[in-house]
Design a protein around this nucleic acid. Sequence first.
DNA 1: CGCCGAAGCTGCC
DNA 2: GGCAGCTTCGGCG
Length: 104
Amino acid sequence: MNMKSFMKKVDIEKLKGTDFQKKVWRVLLQIPKGEIITYKELAIKIGRPRAARAVGNAVGANPFPIKIPCHRVICSDGKIGGYSGKGGVKTKRALLKKEGVIML
DNA sequence: CGCCGAAGCTGCC
DNA sequence: GGCAGCTTCGGCG
């Protein structure tokens, strides 16, 4: 297998950020297309089930909000949390819809 | 069901 | 050292 095909995204490890952030971004990139996750689930995945808020900050602090499926992360209520990126929550909803994720 | 306040975690000034 | 933030939970009406 070609390693090049594997690195279709950006190397988070190469980016500047804390261990916590890198972990969060890594999980985001491991999320399959059309799949979403809550901040809480994400926090639990990285080992900080009580750091849902911190996770939100890390996700929104990523250097490439376009290459990072930050829009795949939603509230535990199944609603869109927020979006510090361009367009705001509006863009987030649009991206989710494009991905095939329909919100009720 | 909707609103309010408090809690636990990180990153930055 | 302290504040604010893409949240979460519990209690109350």
